[in-house]
Every structure is written in C-alpha cells, then in structure tokens.
C-alpha cells in the first residue's frame, strides 16, 4: 500500500505545490522563525519604521542620529518574523459523500482530503505548524498544529481515517473550534457549507474576531451547480435516511438553480463583509491547481 502522501498527491501535484509559498495576510503568533509577520516588535534584525517618541518609551530605542538631523525624538522599531499556526478543518458530513459523473471519480470528501493534503504539505514545507480538525455535527478529530516534518504523516493518517457520514452542523463546529484555536493563525475550512447561510456567516465572523484568518474552500460537485437531471428522480438525502423526495428534475431545475444562486450569493456577501476568503471549488477541477490559483490570487491582492 502506498503511503497516504503518495496515494493522494501525484507527482505533478507535489511539483506544483512545492513551488508555492503561502503567506499569512495578518500578523500571526509563532514560536519560531518563519515567513510570517509576528505581532512582536522591538529589537531585532529587521528594521520596521521610525515612530515619534512618547513618554514611556524606552530611551535606549531613541534614534539619536536622527535626532541630530531633525531635532525631533524618534524611536526605532524592529519587527519579528515567526512561523504560522494553521488549522485545516475538513467537513466529513454525509453530504460530502456525493460524487457526480464529472468529478473524475472523486467524492467531495475525497477532494477535500486531497486539497487538505496539498495544503498541509505546503505549510509544513515552509516550517509552519499545521493542525487538523474533522467534523460533521461536531468535531470528530482534532490534531493540534505542529511544524515538525513527521507531523505531516500524522495528519495524513488522520485524513485517511476520516469517513464521511452523519449530519452536519458547521455553526456548532466553528464555535467549538474557538476554544481550540487560541493563538493567532490561519484556519482553512474545507466544506460544502450546506446549511443556513446566515448562521454560517455569523460563526465565521465569530472565528474571525478571534484573530483568526479564515479561508473557506467551498466544495461543489458539477451536478450541484447545473442540476442536469432529466428523468423522474428520487432524491434521497445523504445525511438523513428518512429525507427523500420524488421530483421531476426538469420541472424543478429553474427553482433549484435560483435557490442555489441565492444561497451562494448570501454566503459570498457574508464572507466578504467579514473578510473571509470564500473559494468555490468544483470536484472536476485539479485540487493542486485550485490551490496554486488561490495562492496566486492571494499574492496579487496583497
């Protein structure tokens, strides 16, 4: 049996991901050196800026040379660079089990796991600490962030062991995640985000207010986007066995698409207001390419 890493990440994926560099947009709080800005400032090697002296500042930090030139008191500030605490949250609810005809045989959950694997590989490679949480109606697995290289194996094992099923409640999960993520960091949520859009947005806002940068990868199957069904169909819920409806898809299609559009629109709007990155991803796309595109977009925005 191949190692999980090799099972999920192909050579092109690895090659593509190895060249990426994910930078946190916000100041993060790490314990070791890294690529990301730390909220700690003071004496260091990296000069940041001159600030006007106010009473209470340490006099030793006054830049006397500048005082000589300008006759004003400025202090010199240095910034620290540290590593990132990143938590990847994977939805393993029943709805993630859906696999359409155009998804290259991948269910949404399998796609999410592969995306998470790529992300983990990327972050660990740049010395960041990566943690993992899987959830359905509550958090099922939680692995605190670590930056050791062998931690990647732990993460992959956990991902491999996650099985989709049960109902989902993303709001409860995000609220419980607050207690787990006490340090500033980055939270990747990989989910289809099915549920009440307003409640989800509120939960994301709560997480955001806890000094977490939040990126949501919303996983879709193409069938869920364009609803291509023609003949009479019994739709049976992947999360609740008792929930099933017999419909003529051709009759319902337009209403479904309008509902879908409304759902996505409200989710996008809420995420934008709370400065949460919402990335819609289809399972027919390449996960490594999705990741590289996102990182490129993110860099351009910065």
């Amino acid at each position: 049996m191949k190692a999980p890493l090799l099972r999920w990440l192909s050579a092109p994926d690895l090659s593509r991901v190895s060249q990426l560099q994910l930078l946190a947009k916000t100041v993060v709080e790490g314990v070791s050196g890294g690529l990301h800005r730390s909220h700690h400032v003071g004496s260091s090697i990296e000069f940041k800026e001159h600030c006007p002296y106010v009473p209470g500042d340490e006099t030793r930090s006054i830049d006397w040379k500048l005082f000589g030139k300008t006759d004003r008191l400025y202090i010199r500030q240095y910034e620290d660079e540290t590593n990132l605490y990143c938590t990847i949250v994977i939805d393993q609810s029943g709805s993630m089990r859906y696999s359409g005809s155009r998804s290259n045989g991948l269910s949404k959950h399998e796609f999410a796991v592969r995306l998470a694997a790529c992300l983990s590989y990327l972050l660990v490679n740049q010395q960041d600490a990566v943690g993992l949480a899987t959830f359905d109606s509550k958090i099922r697995t939680y692995i605190p962030p670590r930056s050791r290289p062998n931690h990647l194996q732990v993460l992959f094992e956990a991902m491999a062991n996650s099985k989709p099923g049960n109902e989902t409640d993303l709001c409860v999960v995000l609220q419980s995640l607050l207690s787990q993520c006490k340090q500033r960091g980055l939270v990747f949520i990989i989910s289809d985000c099915f549920g009440d859009a307003q409640a989800i947005v509120k939960s994301l806002a709560l997480l955001r207010s806890n000094h977490q940068e939040v990126v949501v990868f919303q996983i879709w199957d193409d069938d869920e986007i364009d609803f291509p069904f023609q003949s009479r169909t019994m739709f049976r819920s992947l999360e609740m066995d008792s929930d099933q409806v017999m419909v003529d898809p051709t009759r319902l299609r337009s209403a479904y698409l309008e509902n879908l559009g409304e759902f996505r629109r409200s989710l996008q709007q809420g995420c934008r207001q709370n400065r949460v990155d919402l990335v819609s991803v289809c399972t027919s796309e390449s996960y490594s390419l999705v990741l590289s595109n996102y990182i490129a977009t993110r860099r351009n925005r910065a």
């Binding site: 709805s95 549920g195 003949s231 169909t233 819920s237 419909v247 319902l252 209403a255 479904y256 879908l260």
Partner: peptide, 26 residues
C-alpha cells in the same frame, strides 16, 4: 410514473424548498 432513478443527494435543503414551491402547481 412508475419509472424513476434514485440519486443520493447532498443539497436537499435547496431541493426541498423548490419542491414545496412547485409541486402543487406542477
């Protein structure tokens, strides 16, 4: 009417509301 396909579907919340809206008129 007696012939239909069964699909296990995730986005039931999108479907349910549509069906409620249209089923009687349809």
């Amino acid at each position: 009417r007696s012939r239909y396909q069964t699909i296990e579907w995730g986005a039931m919340h999108l479907l349910q509301s549509s069906r409620n809206l249209n089923s009687r008129r349809l």
